[in-house]
Amino acid sequence: MGSMISQAGFDLTFKYVKLFEQGIVVTVMLALFTVIFGFLLGILLCILRMTDIRPFRFLAIDRNGRLRDGGILLTLSKFNPVSFLATCYVEVIRSTPVLVQILIIYHGLFKAISLPKFTFFGFISFERFFPGVVALAMNSGAYLCEIIRSGIQSIDGGQSEAARSLGLSRGQTMLHIVLPQAIRNILPAIANEFVVIIKESAICYTIGVQDIMAAVEAVRGATFRIMEPLLVATALYFCLCFPTSKIIAYVERRMSRGSKR
């Protein structure tokens, strides 16, 4: 074998340009579907975490119909099983590696559920692509849930107090006062999550999704060159992520202009 990086190595790599082209399409599709499903899951998780379902609510009221001012019964009355489960999900996802999650989803969940075997766009194998999207979306949903929740909680409590003091209900206050301000605040973080997903999708090659990284592995297997295909992959990921984050930064500046004088 010659030097680590050589012109001949790049020439060999470029013979497989078709694989890289397909890899780009797969990576972009992965990121796109992941963002959509991840965002929907994030909203759902956020709603679940912020519900006010308290089956033991009655324990907070004492014999005279008053709110208790402390004690174990007051603590117990605040228990919300729905929020608890959603919180467990978020914390488990955030505290385990995405590699482990994706392997469990592929080898566990989608061995139990058999997916139809077909390809779309002529080269994307659904039975590998779909578990990849599911695993990434489940992961991203947990992070997006926290982003959305922190956005809502970042709105000053005085805003809700003012709205409620005018007679607006909890729901009206959320819809007209809190959410519009929260969404404006978290848009940059959501956009940033999109860039993160593009990069994280590289992990899907471990379950055989034909993305950019899979193209690298294919070239390596056929030519025994590794650095050249890796450098090509680096350039491709950079060309996907860098402009995306720049566009996001531009949109962000445009939006914040509106809220200033």
Partner: peptide, 26 residues
């Protein structure tokens, strides 16, 4: 609450609404 108006130390106007919208919303 509709019958009790409240004015806060830190105003708590809605920053994403115009003055007119602040007043007409409720």
């Amino acid at each position: 609450r509709q019958k009790m108006g409240m004015v806060f130390q830190h105003f708590n106007l809605f920053p994403h609404k115009t003055i007119l919208e602040n007043m007409t919303l409720a």
